Computed example of a mutant assay.
Amino acid sequence: MKKLFQSYQLNDILLNNRFVMAPMTRSRSSQGSVPNDLMAEYYGQRATAGLIISEATQISLQGMGYAKTPGIYTQEQVEGWKKVTENVHQKGGHLFLQLWHVGRVSSSKINGLQPLAPSAIPASNTSVYIFDGAPNNDATFISVEDPKEMTKKDIQQTINDFAAGAENAIEAGFDGVEIHGANGYLIDQFLRSNSNIRTDEYGGNAENRIRFLMEVSEAVVKAVGKERTGVRLSPFIKFKDMDDPEILDTIMLAAEKLNAMGIAYIHLCEADWDDAPEIPYPFRKELREKFKNTIIATGNKTPSEGEDLLEQNLVDLIGFGRRFLTNPDYPERVRQNAALNEITDSHTLFGGGDARGYTDYPFLS
């Protein structure tokens, strides 16, 4: 595992290794979507990752799709996140905040608002969750609601919200931000021809469908700098009713434009279930040719699989999600080839008011 444990220069940030703690929604924020002391402890425990990317964080109340997820649009939220960044930095770690707008993947039962989307097309077979006193503090899943097609004013407001969220993240002490353009959420909805049937400059051909992503990225770069801006994309993920035969060409066009913009990285969110499709070598090779800066790959990889991608120079950093969830000292466990903690109680994955299943996973003795 020589490559995984090498340091890595991410622009002016020296990462201690090439492990990335991938973003994972845990729904632990306090009232008002404010990060809290428990979250600060959780992230601080995992500061041995070369880079932490925070859980998805909504840029506005409109952008919220699940209960108890954190925000980055009020001063109280900024102050809450400062506890997180200070704890991680004190322990020698680095972290980016993931900027999130869920688009049509929402319900008025979450935020009191009708969801917005590029087109008024609901996502079939798609749910979000609330907490309504179910046994074991479980999340209760509810169907998403029909969205409203975004007006030009809505689009501009959302672009402004991404930029403001980025500025707030830097004020909160983050080393940078990641624009969430993956997994069927708002930006991904604009990218895909089956969820975006607009007839204006934001819909139709691929050049138009990437326009929203590019305008968001330009606004964020202007707000915090290209060296502090990453983008997450998920070309091979089709859940949330996102099966688009044109998406690979669209993603590659976006990668070329993002390369010209000079952003810090592209983060590939890859399917992480057992029979998930492998990302084909030709796609990885073409992406490497068209995007010259850092590439992160995340998707239930073993350390040896990650090492192989690093050795082939197809990616630069490897993201791990669930392994960091249950193993706060995951890099050291890999180094020692030590046994791994497994999920002890699935009821604690989303939500919970205490340390159980969140900050109580043991470290190596």
Results as ranks from 00 to 15, higher is better:
Tyr66Gly: 09
Tyr129Ala: 00
Ala67Arg: 05
Tyr129Leu: 00
Glu145Lys: 05
Leu116Val: 13
Ile130Met: 01
Ser124Trp: 15
Glu79Pro: 01
Gln77Tyr: 04
Gly71Phe: 11
Ser119Ala: 06
Gln58Phe: 09
His101Thr: 06
Val144Asp: 15
Leu51Cys: 08
Leu95Ala: 15
Pro122His: 07
Lys91Ser: 02
Leu116Glu: 07
Asn136Ser: 13
Val84Asp: 00
Asn87Tyr: 06
Lys109Pro: 14
Pro115Leu: 04
His89Met: 05
Asn87Arg: 12
Val144Thr: 15
Val102Lys: 07
Leu99Ile: 15
Leu99Cys: 15
Ser108Gly: 13
Ser108Glu: 14
Phe141Arg: 08
Ile130Glu: 01
Val78His: 09
Lys109Gly: 08
Asn125Val: 01
Ser106Arg: 09
Gln98Leu: 12
Val102Met: 06
Phe96Ala: 05
Lys83Gln: 09
Lys109His: 03
Asn125Glu: 14
Gln75Tyr: 04
Ala67Met: 08
Thr57Ser: 08
Pro115Cys: 05
Lys83Gly: 14
Gly71Asn: 12
Met64Ile: 04
Ala123His: 07
Leu95Ile: 13
Ile52His: 03
Asn111Cys: 03
Ala67Asn: 05
Pro118Leu: 03
Gly65Glu: 03
His94Gln: 11
Tyr129Met: 03
Leu61Arg: 10
Leu99Glu: 13
Tyr66Val: 08
His89Lys: 14
Leu61Pro: 13
Ala134Glu: 11
Ile142His: 04
Ala117Ser: 09
Gly50Asp: 00
Gly63Pro: 01
Ala120Pro: 01
Met64Glu: 13
Ile121Ser: 00
Asp138Gln: 12
His94Ile: 10
Gly50Asn: 09
Gln90Gly: 09
His101Asp: 05
Gly93Lys: 02
Gly80Trp: 02
Tyr73Met: 14
Gln58Ser: 09
Ser107Gly: 11
His101Gly: 05
Ala139Gly: 04
Ser107His: 02
Arg104Leu: 11
Trp100Ser: 08
Gly63Ile: 05
Trp100Cys: 04
Ser106His: 09
Ile121Ala: 02
Ala117His: 07
Leu95Arg: 06
Val105Asp: 09
Gly92Glu: 08
Ala56Ile: 03
Pro135Glu: 00
Leu51Tyr: 08
Gln90Lys: 12
Lys83Thr: 02
Gln77Val: 07
Glu86Gln: 10
Leu97Ser: 12
Lys82Gly: 13
Ala120Tyr: 00
Glu79Arg: 09
Leu116His: 10
Asn87Thr: 12
Gly92Cys: 10
Asp132Glu: 01
Thr140Gln: 13
Ile130Asn: 02
Gly92Asp: 06
Ser124Cys: 14
Phe141Met: 11
Ile142Ser: 14
Gly103Ile: 06
Trp81Glu: 11
Thr57Arg: 02
Gln62Thr: 05
Val102Arg: 13
Glu145Asn: 08
Asn137Lys: 04
Thr85Gln: 12
Leu61Trp: 07
Ala120Val: 01
Ser108Asp: 15
Arg104Lys: 12
Thr126Leu: 01
Ser108His: 15
Ala67Asp: 14
Ala117Arg: 08
Ser60His: 11
Pro70Cys: 06
Ala134Trp: 02
Ala123Gln: 04
